[in-house]
């Protein structure tokens, strides 16, 4: 294979990882508190509040039902306001975060509602407040499930970042579109797809391994 193609593929991997990692990170900055709020205001939560739950729930549902490509176009003004341009890897992080956050919130919620109510009650009986319970019981005891959720989120975001390539987002998706779709270069397209699969495999394996390691049950 020609050297420039290898360089291009390596750069593609770099961009894909850059977008996915930062989008996951910022996604959690928004999605984690969101998911915690969903959990504690929900039906069996420690701060039940059907009004707040309803609002958070509806927003998550609406945002999750918008297809990613359409969302990407919709948020272009916001992307330009934040990043200064609407194309390239950094710009793609904005719609990635917006689309990942509600998904992450749901993932976090479903991990946390599984935490044993008895354990929560026990620390409440010792006088623990809401903050302590969130930090040490919900997040601490829900850790394994949270890690599994993070792995799934990352793989999903990686897939989205490839999709973003169709709109000039950079990364492996961008290469696949340019060579495979516009130039009928099936070989390069297949290579990028294989690389995407390998990346997902690596992170899935890593996530599973970390999750297992940290599970003391």
């Amino acid at each position: 294979m020609r050297e420039e193609i290898v360089t291009m593929l390596l750069q593609g991997i770099g961009e894909t990882l850059y977008m996915s990692v930062f989008a996951t990170l910022f996604g959690y900055v928004i999605g984690l508190p969101w998911g915690v709020a969903l959990c504690i205001t929900g039906k069996n939560g420690i701060k039940r509040n059907s009004g707040i739950y309803f609002v958070l729930d509806v927003i998550a549902n609406i945002m999750r039902s918008i297809p990613f490509l359409i969302l990407m176009i919709m948020v272009i003004p916001l992307t330009i306001a934040i990043v200064g341009q609407s194309y390239g890897s950094t710009a793609t992080i904005v719609p990635l975060v917006i689309s990942a956050a509600p998904m992450i919130a749901r993932m976090v919620e479903s991990s946390l509602v599984e935490v044993d109510a008895g354990e929560i009650e026990a620390v409440q009986s010792m006088g623990a407040g809401t903050g302590w319970i969130i930090l040490h019981v919900l997040l601490g005891e829900g850790r394994v499930s949270l890690i599994a959720g993070a792995t799934i989120s990352f793989a999903t975001i990686l897939g989205y970042s490839a999709m973003a390539g169709t709109l000039g987002g950079g990364g492996l998706g961008d290469i696949a579109i340019r060579y495979g779709y516009h130039r009928y270069d099936t070989q390069i397209m297949i290579i990028t797809v294989v690389l995407l699969v390998v990346l997902v495999q690596i992170f899935q394996g890593l996530g599973t391994w970390v999750g297992k390691k940290s599970d003391k049950r």
Binding site: E119, E121, Q124, S125, G127, G140
Partner: peptide
């Protein structure tokens, strides 16, 4: 006040990850 009233349970309710 709850610090002065401790409680134990049928299912122990220990934190499993600690």
């Amino acid at each position: 006040e709850r610090g002065r009233i401790a409680m134990i349970f049928q299912s122990f309710n220990l934190l499993q990850q600690k």
